[in-house]
Amino acid sequence: MSDLSRNTYSDVASGDTSFHEHLSDRAFITAILEFEAALADAAADAGHITLESARAAHDAINATELDLDAVAAASAAGGNPTIPLVADLKKRAGDANGIHVGATSQDAIDTALVLCLRRAGRVLDTRLGDVVKLLSDLATTHRDTPVMGRTLGQQALPTTFGVIAAGWLEAVRESARQLGLALEALPVQYAGATGNLVDTHPRGIDVHDRLAASLGLASRPLVWHTNRLPLVSVGLAAAQVAGAVRKIAGDVIASSATEIAEVAEATPGGSSSMPHKANPAAAVACDGYARRTPGLAATLLDTLDCRWQRGTGSWHAEWQTIREIFAATASAVNRIHASLDGLRVHTETMAQRTTGDHTGHAAEITDLILEGDHR
């Protein structure tokens, strides 16, 4: 199995893979073990198990050497990887009281996904900050650069390239903010087999809240086994980020066309058969990655249909979908950064096509958008 989130082309070809490493199968399974270790500590701290049982749990977890292929094969019988992992830990521990205390498989898997997403989100936020800086610089530099606006595929009225870049900036900045809020709100999952913490009563809620604090996660909603809004919200927020950078990519691609040639990537791509071409390859790749996210977002919305106290297939559909939507978004952000870094703006070509010199409030709008940039 790969230590990246999907495959060699999709991740490595997008640029920096530090984001994708947090979404890998290894990161996911390791986070399940992290949940089990933190749960043993929380249960001991709450007085539900002994310190000796917690230590035995830690010894078993620390001694585990992950064989991802073996875990995948063993997952088939029960339908998820937690079942064989927990069975192995209980065998290793001897004293099994500290393993999977009062938990169910969904508790471990949901919390592991949340941990992976939070960590990946921190890397993505840094990259988005870099994109915001590039856009802010473009908007500032070209505050007064005239260019023909285009509506419905036709030339319209003059505007400025500064206000165009500021519009790109505003969308990226706001979508990044929304994603940050959704990630910050991601909660721990710990509620037991039917969501009522019966196996750790009367200390269950105390164990839950200690576990949340230990992992640095929100403690509410208390039970979200069939309330999938936390994961769906963060997935949709990621898709909005992908949409915001895809808009930029589309404009760069269109404006790089030979017949327009108003912008050009600093390091355009070539062609295997046409040596004269200078393709906006980074923007094209950004578009390709981002274009996958609406379908993935639709799948996440479909998972809101959870039956009774545990989703039957709807929950299982989330595990890869949420990682895919994050990975595709991160890859799109990587490529739009490459597209914008050193973007060549052909101001003379823009000026030659501009009819009239009235650009309205374009410069003032640019300034107002830039003033809202507090990153």
Score class of each variant (00 low, 15 high):
K91I: 13
E265K: 09
A239E: 03
P230L: 03
P158T: 09
V12A: 06
H361A: 15
D287M: 14
G121R: 08
G313V: 05
T160R: 04
Y289S: 02
L300E: 02
A63P: 15
D209H: 08
D16G: 00
E184W: 07
A44G: 10
R246W: 06
W168P: 02
V147N: 02
T355L: 11
F19V: 11
N62Y: 13
A278N: 14
D125R: 15
E174K: 07
P202T: 14
R246M: 09
D302T: 13
T8H: 11
A238C: 07
V333L: 00
S10Y: 12
T267A: 07
D199P: 00
E259P: 10
V12T: 11
A266E: 06
T293S: 10
Q155R: 12
V333W: 01
A283N: 04
L186H: 10
D341E: 13
R228L: 01
F28V: 04
A73H: 10
W168V: 08
H225N: 06
G204D: 03
M148T: 00
T303F: 10
G15Y: 05
L124F: 14
R127W: 13
S219T: 13
I32F: 04
A176T: 13
R375M: 10
S256I: 03
T267W: 06
L85H: 03
T267P: 01
V198K: 12
P275Y: 09
R210E: 00
A112C: 08
Q154E: 13
I61T: 01
R228A: 00
A74Q: 09
A261P: 04
V284H: 13
F35W: 06
